[in-house]
Every structure is written in structure tokens, then in C-alpha cells.
Design a protein around this nucleic acid. Sequence first.
DNA 1: TCCTATACCTAGGTTATCTATGTATAAGAT
DNA 2: ATCTTATACATAGATAACCTAGGTATAGGA
Lengths: 106, 106
Amino acid sequence: MNFRGSLTLLILFVLSKGPNHGYQIAKAIKQQSDGILDFKEGTLYPTLHGLEQQGMIEVFEQAENGRSRRYYRLTQDGRALLDQERDEWARYSSAVDNVLKGAQPS
Amino acid sequence: MNFRGSLTLLILFVLSKGPNHGYQIAKAIKQQSDGILDFKEGTLYPTLHGLEQQGMIEVFEQAENGRSRRYYRLTQDGRALLDQERDEWARYSSAVDNVLKGAQPS
DNA sequence: TCCTATACCTAGGTTATCTATGTATAAGAT
DNA sequence: ATCTTATACATAGATAACCTAGGTATAGGA
């Protein structure tokens, strides 16, 4: 399937529940969508790097099982972007639904 | 806004209500979405040409106000694709919604 | 006469996604 | 001991869906 720009929204949402690292973010999205939203690593990591560069998320290193993980947390800008993207998604998806259920005058 | 691949679905849906020409299809999508789904002509026409090449829609010329319009109608393959794209949209959009409303264990 | 809406089109660019590949560690299976 | 799988991060290059910006042409209203 074609995922059409929802990854940023989903990443920001997952991080709004608490700091997390890339691999775990992807797993959370996949699990909570019953496997339907299955973003690839070649999509995930560049997107995380972009969000970091834009100041939407912050990185910090944290040890886990003796290895270092790259954890991300939401910044204030990131939280604002999350709100905006949620609104846009709601507007967009209901717009598509409205067209699709629209009775048409013949 | 980012339209995330819904144009094909929307075109096929509009044509499932009866043959129509490009400009009018775009207007229908825009009007029925309260202006939110506003695809540009540089997107619309190439997409129509692509769907025609794939055999999803058929073109016929029809005079209107003394001018010739390029009307499109859905083929059988196009109707099958419409059904498939509707399913995919429903799956995709509810998957995103599920993630977004997902309560998270802390 | 000018502007706007209608109607179609293409070239070239951007961005989100993909596939494919690479590195490295840990845990479980054989 | 070795193999495989899951974890974890990363980059390069391709593709597809969209965009902007331009072009052509007709009809109708101000």
C-alpha cells in the first residue's frame, strides 16, 4: 500500500506518549495498526533525521541492554506540528469520505 | 496539503456516477469536499491519461456548446479498480485512526 | 476591450515512499 | 559451535504522486 504522508504524523503521535527510539516507533505503528501501516527502515530513519533537523524532535543517547540507543523526544515545536498534522489528517480524510459518500444528481 | 494518492480513487468514483470530462471531474471533487480537495490541472490531466493507458477509463469526444469535450467513462477494469481502491482507502484511513486513538501503556 | 471561467496540455521540480544494501549485537535454535 | 532471526541504525538510488509554471484556445460578462 501507499502511505501518502502519514508517517510524520504517526511518529510525532507515538513520541507524544513518551520518548522512544526509531526501531520501537516503527514497531508501535505497525502493531497498533494491525500490521497495515508497515513503514520501511529506509523511510523511517531519513524521516527521523529530517524531523530532528527541523527541530521537531530531539535526540539523546540512552543505554539499553548494554547498547546505546538513539532515543527521540518531542520538542514544543514538534507538539505544535503534531496538533497541526492531526487537524490536517482529520480534514483530509473526512473530505475524501464526503466525496465518496456524496450522492450525485444525475 | 498533501493528497496522498487519493486522486485515482476520486476520479474513478466520480466517473462511476456517469461519464464526465476532466475539468468537470476536478470541479466535482473540489465542490463535494468543500474546497479541501483541490487538485491542480498539472496533476489531473496526466492522471487521466495514465488511467486511460491502463484501460481503466475510456475516452470519447462529445460536443458541448459548440466545442468538443474529452469525456471519460469507466471500463469494467476501472470499476474493479474503484472497488479495490475504496477498500484500500478504508483500510488505510481506519489504520491511521486506530493508531491515533490508541491508548498507550506507559 | 478586458477579464474571468472554461477546457485541455506539457515540462520540470519536489517529496514521500520504496527496494536494496551495509554494519553490528543479542538471543535462540540446531 | 554455528546458524538464523530479531534488534538497531544507516545510506544510495529509484519511483510515483503531486506541485508550479507555463502554454493554447473559446465563451461570456463587465
